[in-house]
Amino acid sequence: MNDPKPFQYAVLRAVPRVERGEYVNVGVIIYCQADEFLAAALDINERRLLALAPDADLDAIRTSAESVVRGCHEPVGSARENTGLATRFGILTAPRSTVVQPSPVHAGVTRDPERTLAELLTRLVH
């Protein structure tokens, strides 16, 4: 039986000009403890970013967003206890003032975290 399991997620936002606070959603990161699942998916719409900020550094935005995806699969930073997925999710979703920022963390329930990630990407980013 595939019972519903709680999960947490955050939207990844590209903020090309941090001082203005304007952003474009570019990805989603999801964590489901019950399935030991941590993953992120991206869809960086360069046209939308350039409409918001014609001088946006698209390479920096892409590099920063891709580092979140990589961080889901390997330890990030130098914290000694950075091996657990819950810790890693916390590090990846910590508020920061950079070109790619996480939204506040939200919660839900899922039967299939991978499918939920794809659905959230479609609903919140596309």
Rank of each mutant, 00 (worst) to 15 (best):
14 A>I: 05
60 A>V: 01
62 R>C: 07
42 L>D: 13
55 D>Q: 13
77 G>F: 01
68 V>M: 09
36 E>W: 09
86 A>P: 04
98 T>A: 15
89 F>N: 02
44 I>K: 07
46 E>R: 10
123 R>W: 10
87 T>A: 10
56 A>D: 04
38 L>V: 12
72 C>G: 05
124 L>Y: 06
114 E>A: 15
97 S>E: 15
12 L>D: 06
16 P>M: 03
94 A>C: 11
73 H>L: 14
125 V>W: 00
40 A>H: 11
29 I>M: 08
121 L>I: 01
14 A>E: 03
125 V>Q: 00
120 L>M: 01
1 M>C: 09
14 A>G: 06
6 P>D: 10
52 L>H: 00
112 D>C: 06
5 K>P: 01
14 A>Q: 06
50 L>H: 08
124 L>N: 04
77 G>L: 03
43 D>H: 14
120 L>G: 00
109 V>Q: 15
10 A>M: 01
126 H>E: 14
104 P>Q: 10
110 T>L: 05
42 L>S: 12
62 R>A: 14
122 T>K: 15
75 P>T: 09
22 E>C: 02
80 R>P: 08
60 A>T: 02
2 N>I: 09
92 L>A: 10
105 V>P: 09
45 N>C: 05
5 K>M: 14
44 I>Y: 05
97 S>A: 15
21 G>I: 05
107 A>I: 11
